[in-house]
Design a protein around this nucleic acid. Structure first.
Lengths: 185, 185
DNA sequence: CTTGTCTATGCAACGAGTTGCATAGAAGGA
DNA sequence: TCCTTCTATGCAACTCGTTGCATAGACAAG
């Protein structure tokens, strides 16, 4: 229900086409809110017909023309309203947690390689976040003049980093547990 | 796609009715995988017609009769198969992260009370987890005889605890950032 | 020269998830 | 007495999300 709002934020940060939004959702924003290009195109259509966003046809050479979207006044208002509404604790879906509890009824040791794969994925994502932090949030200007947008993007990124570190520590705990159960067997 | 599997795990841990499953999803399991009673009843129907689970009508006094479900052999097999399939890094939806980035285009200070509400919710959930851990995973037998199911439930619970602690630390960071931006204003 | 990848947009169909409503008896409080 | 809450199940309608497929030009590698 908040894909519209995620798109509004992304377009306020920088106008762009549906395709570009889809790429952003794959990279930065998608780590906190994911969406496929189909979803994005459909929602952009609706937002446009609701007057939340404006379109501009941008002709290009050597590639198809694109439609660049930017946020209109009603879209800004809709975002402001959403920001003032309370939201509920998000609904989580931890497949891995379900699998771990399920492993009690199968072979726990068989999960080890799966958990190791996840460990690797989180290691990669952490490295990606840290590289982004070094690139975008270090240097002399950082901290001198407080830019709200920059500060807020940084605190969200710090959240991503904290999440990945927590996950890695937990996955180590899970692996140790699985090895213990496998060995006692 | 894995609600079936979450239900299978829950029914293997303890058979029960749709209503009981819905309550479990509200409490323990729902912190890692949430579902409404409508979804559960619908999926139970499908699982029953697929032969994954068995039903038993249980008459009761002073309350409506219930249908107690338990896992049949094909259900166990389906779960085992799923456990051996790799799963992708779960898709996340952090509304709050979107709101925080969106606050750059509104009043950051207006988010403070919202973030404080989330802080409170996570404090409560952490307390709930810790109480559960004290209740179910302490005492003389804990650690002496390694029971796989118990150990695996405990490691999942430790994950929940680690998650809540990480969130609380991050929300403190977010609050400090919002206060800094509000004060500089 | 064909195959594959990248940009760019979109339809159609299906499956998953949400919301509102309905039933119905028992228990407990205002 | 009436109102609400709890147990227990379910239908209907709707929106959201996913998957498969299609188009189409440009470019690079084999």
């Amino acid at each position: 229900m908040a894909l519209e709002h995620a798109i509004l934020v992304s377009l306020l940060e920088k106008p762009g086409s549906g395709y570009e939004l889809a790429r952003r959702f794959e990279r930065s924003i998608g780590y906190f809110w994911n969406a496929t290009h189909q979803q994005i195109y459909r929602v952009l259509k609706r937002m446009e017909s609701d007057g939340w966003i404006d379109v501009r046809e941008v002709p290009q050479q050597a590639r198809p023309d694109k439609k660049e979207y930017s946020v209109a006044a009603p879209g800004r208002a809709a975002l402001a309203q959403w920001l003032h509404e309370p939201i509920e604790p998000e609904s989580v879906r931890h497949d891995l947690a379900v699998k771990i509890r399920g492993a009690a009824f199968d072979d726990p040791a068989a999960l080890i390689s799966e958990v190791e794969r996840h460990h690797q994925a989180h290691t990669d994502r952490l490295a990606h976040y840290l590289a982004g932090e070094r690139r975008d949030f270090t240097g002399p200007e950082a901290g001198a003049v407080p830019d709200a947008g920059r500060e807020l993007q940084h605190v969200v990124l710090r959240g991503g980093i904290a999440y990945e570190r927590m996950m890695l520590a937990w996955l180590d705990d899970v692996l140790a547990t699985l090895h213990r159960l496998g060995g006692a067997h």
